[in-house]
């Protein structure tokens, strides 16, 4: 049972680590790394959900007709990976601009907007 649930536990742990990193680290780059960990955790959860015991991978060249697993979650994961790349790139470029203008990338320094 534990072995069967291992991927879900791993996904949960990854997400927890990511959220912990976002809350405990003050460096913006590290916080974005935490965000990427959360994303990895969600991706792992998605892929784990797609596992079917004894299922046949939907590769058309060598799978028997009509008996393949439907690759919905795999497609979702790929989409989320692409979205994740775009988001991470945007966030990191924001941090670069902030570091250049503020001279710091610490969350408790980057707070000119408040009140």
């Amino acid at each position: 049972m534990v072995l069967y649930n291992l991927p879900f536990i791993a996904a949960g742990l990854l997400m927890a680590f990511g959220i912990a990193a976002m809350l405990l680290r003050r460096n913006l780059i590290k916080m974005i790394m935490g965000l990427s960990l959360v994303e990895a955790g969600v991706n792992l959860l998605l892929v784990s959900l797609g596992y079917r015991a004894g299922g046949i991978a939907p590769i058309f060249t060598n799978a028997p007709r009509d008996l393949m697993v439907m690759p919905t979650v795999q497609a979702m994961t790929l989409t989320n990976i692409v979205i994740g790349i775009a988001t991470t790139a945007l966030l990191l470029s924001f941090v670069m601009v902030i570091y250049r203008r503020y001279g710091s990338a610490e969350a408790d320094v980057v707070r000119r907007l408040r009140g």
Partner: peptide, 12 residues
């Protein structure tokens, strides 16, 4: 007012 600290960690 101090709750609107501007620190990203607090928002999260």
């Amino acid at each position: 007012v101090p709750l609107h600290s501007g620190i990203l960690t607090d928002y999260l």
